[in-house]
């Protein structure tokens, strides 16, 4: 079992990791960040991106409810991964990782993030 700071430093050991940030989705606050130049702006933006994805997919899903495991966005310069971690007492905590596409392996990164999130929050 790990804490918030360890969770970030472990995420940064994933091959190809460029930066990582933990975001409180409800308020869009940067909880902790590593290698991110403007954590507050990044947190707000990532939180909005996640919200838009949730809303959009909820509308396009036949059963109307949606539970996102990971959001994967590939851009011309990076892979962006957003993984929500549900907590019992507040809206999800998002762990967001930016990866160098030259060095990263997406499948491996997803597995590692999954493992980290399970050790951070058990519920």
């Amino acid at each position: 079992m790990i804490g918030i700071e360890d969770c970030l430093s472990e995420a940064m050991t994933i091959p190809g990791a460029l930066d990582a940030i933990l975001v409180d989705h409800t308020s869009g606050m940067a909880v902790a960040a590593e290698g991110v130049p403007y954590p507050e702006g990044s947190a707000a933006g990532l939180s909005e991106a996640f919200r838009a994805t949730l809303d959009g997919l909820a509308l396009s899903t036949p059963d109307g409810t949606i539970r996102i495991e990971d959001v994967i966005v590939t851009t011309d310069r990076a892979y962006h991964l957003i993984k929500p971690m549900e907590t019992m007492f507040d809206g999800p905590l998002l762990i967001c990782l930016r990866l160098d596409p030259e060095r990263a392996n997406l499948a491996l990164a997803l597995r590692r993030l999954q493992a980290i999130s399970h050790r951070l929050i058990a519920s």
Partner: peptide
Amino acid sequence: LVGKGVLTRGELEFCVLGATL
């Protein structure tokens, strides 16, 4: 609480942080 395994360290920290804010 963390030592007893009823809560992870991450949950405790996040809960304290959330309640404080």
